[in-house]
Design a protein around this nucleic acid. Structure first.
Length: 216
DNA sequence: TGCCAGGCCGGGT
DNA sequence: ACCCGGCATGGC
């Protein structure tokens, strides 16, 4: 498909979803810090299980950079148990927190004052932070103009012939970023809407026949 | 009951 | 540059 067509189709999909479903007000979370921790916890995990873990973190007063820096790993692992992969996620959270203190004195504000591209590269160097987690942090916690790609995004785009089966993360991301205005608000809503469609239409019975993307 | 969920890493080709 | 097994709980 030619670029011009792709860009029109991407915009059309967005407008159709937005009009049919409305704003999603993403990411679910009370603060940028909570968004970041949630982004790590939700790796290959249902959001429901993550919510339980975040609730537990709040109960134990652990949803805070200094507390997480100091907390014993065993305690942390036990607290986030419901999110699955708890040992490895404990390490990943610790890795991020140490990064935050070593480079920005524990301040998210300082971290996000950095420019998008260099910050993204630094985040990707943290063990346990891959492209989706990094981009979720940048977009949803930091308000930076980057498009988040996830399993739903690829599945839906593949079905609508906008990417090939072989398309990886960066190729899929480039499709959005090179064919749409780099608008934080839209990137935010667009990804959230795709997740909504994936969850509530694609894999629901009944559901697919009512999908707002039907016919596009 | 088994399969899947808003990934990522490390080791192997 | 890909490909794969491992990581683990809770919901259906």
């Amino acid at each position: 498909m030619r670029q011009k067509r792709k860009s029109k189709k991407l915009l059309k999909i967005y407008q159709k979803l937005y009009n049919a479903i409305g704003p999603r007000h993403w990411w679910p979370g009370d603060s940028p810090f909570e968004v970041i921790i949630g982004a790590i916890l939700t790796q290959n995990t249902s959001w429901k299980n993550v919510e339980t873990a975040i609730k537990a973190l709040k109960e134990y007063n652990l949803l805070d950079p200094v507390r997480l820096l100091k907390v014993d790993e065993g305690i942390l692992a036990n607290t986030i148990k419901s999110s699955g992969f708890f040992n490895i996620k404990t390490k990943r959270i610790k890795n991020f927190i140490r990064f935050l203190f070593e480079n920005y004195q524990g301040s998210l504000e300082k971290m996000f004052s950095e420019n998008l591209t260099p910050l993204r590269e630094k985040l990707l160097k943290i063990n346990g932070i891959g492209p989706e987690t990094a981009d979720s942090i940048l977009l949803y916690a930091g308000g930076k103009p980057i498009f988040v790609v996830d399993a739903y995004t690829r599945k839906i785009l593949l079905r609508h012939n906008l990417i090939s089966k072989a398309a990886g993360y960066s190729e899929t991301q480039a499709l959005f970023m090179e064919n749409l205005e780099k608008d934080v608000r839209m990137f935010n809503e667009y990804h959230a809407l795709l997740v909504y469609v994936g969850k509530y239409f694609c894999k629901r019975i009944p559901g697919c026949e009512n999908c707002p993307m039907r016919g596009l």
